[in-house]
Design a protein around this nucleic acid. Structure first.
Lengths: 158, 158
DNA sequence: GCTGATAATAAGCACCCCTTACAAAGATGC
DNA sequence: GCATCTTTGTAAGGGGTGCTTATTATCAGC
């Protein structure tokens, strides 16, 4: 079995990668003339995938608390990238959708993400990459299960 | 080739995993009666690995700026888990070491990390895990190279 | 001795979260 | 119909993880 250092290493490596990806994406986003924070970007991409959605559902999909999501949506709404509307089926709830202005931004974010992914998988065979992704997804699922939250978290970003 | 969704997915997945690991470790750390933040924990484990070290070297190893590291060390010093001493070879520099009190904390952190790693790799064969780790390490190296920093970042946590 | 670089820290800030609390709306049971 | 509990989104407040610019003291090289 791996030495005990592996216990540090997985968490450290994933943390490092996460931080480095974030920094790299921020650089590419800035270079592309966008000014979207990572959280906002994530929110946009998730709405793009899901379509018009309630805030609470979106928060759950993204694995963050309602308050956190509300802050992201606030800032995106101010930038006219998303719009909020009361859900006619339940007046407590708000529906969030992308504006037409957001479409270009979303496309750019996707392209940047594509580019980075291509850079990172450049030296890997397709099946290797698929295995890596499958393993990471399972690990994420395991971790989400530890939290005893609903499995909706598993589907975040997919 | 993978669909464009993969570009979102890798970054998202790693980010999710990073966040979930952090949350899970915080839960386990709190349950163990420790009260160490992730950054502080990382700092302790890195010092434990490296031994007495200059702050600037430690910061570089951990992939953070000097100021960030200084803050971590401040808090750990206040908790009597690390001690600072002027480096006799260069009075600008400070050497940081673990105190004897930190030893138990470090052991606990390692045990918690071991436990989590075991939980996560439970369903994977050893060679699968090794392949995953090797791929993640290479990806981290690629990302670090994009940043055009010194390769010392590659060695962080190892 | 002078110049440029380095190490650590002060000050300030952004971002990403979270918690507690609350008001409005909805669901449920009697 | 009413009381009670739950849900949704937000106000207020705060912690952690970073970073940048600036500064001081020290060091290295010429």
């Amino acid at each position: 079995m791996p030495t005990r250092q592996d216990s540090d290493s997985f968490g450290f490596i994933v943390g490092d990668i996460s931080r480095l990806i974030r920094a790299e994406m921020e650089r590419r986003i800035a270079a592309a003339g966008l000014s979207v924070t990572p959280g906002e970007g994530r929110t946009l991409l998730n709405i793009a995938r899901i379509g018009t959605v309630r805030q609470n559902v979106l928060a759950e999909r993204m694995g963050v608390e309602a308050m956190t999501l509300s802050g992201y949506v606030d800032r995106l709404e101010q930038r006219c990238l998303v719009s909020r509307a009361v859900d006619p089926a339940d007046r407590r709830a708000k529906l969030v959708s992308l504006t037409s202005e957001a479409e270009g931004v979303v496309e750019e974010l996707r392209a940047l993400g594509d580019s980075l992914r291509a850079d990172l998988s450049r030296t890997m065979r397709s099946d290797e990459w698929d295995a890596l992704m499958a393993n990471l997804r399972r690990i994420r699922e395991d971790l989400a299960g530890m939290k005893c939250k609903t499995p909706a978290v598993v589907e975040t970003g997919e």
